[in-house]
């Protein structure tokens, strides 16, 4: 069954939210989702850009109280 794993990258300047996603996506199955929590506006733009470039599905991006939530589903 597909699952969603949370990556809490709030306050993560280095290596940063997208790097955390790049590491985590190797560890989950195709069909699983990853929800990245970030306080960095740049990564809220970078993560969907990378996902689209590679072909993963961008499920949702939203901001709540200064925290960006980006949900990506691994498609391959």
């Amino acid at each position: 069954m597909a699952s969603t794993r949370e990556i809490d990258a709030r306050g993560a300047f280095c290596p940063g939210p997208l790097m955390e996603l790049l590491a985590a996506i190797k560890e989950v199955e195709v069909g699983d989702s990853l929800e990245v929590l970030s306080t960095d506006k740049g990564s809220a733009d970078d993560i969907p850009e990378w996902a689209r470039k590679v072909g993963h599905e961008v499920v949702e991006t939203r901001e709540e109280n200064g925290v960006y939530h980006v949900i990506i589903r691994k498609t391959k």
Partner: peptide, 10 residues
């Protein structure tokens, strides 16, 4: 570099 700029730290 893996992300959208040349280093993690902006």
């Amino acid at each position: 570099y893996p992300i959208g700029r040349v280093h993690s730290l902006e």
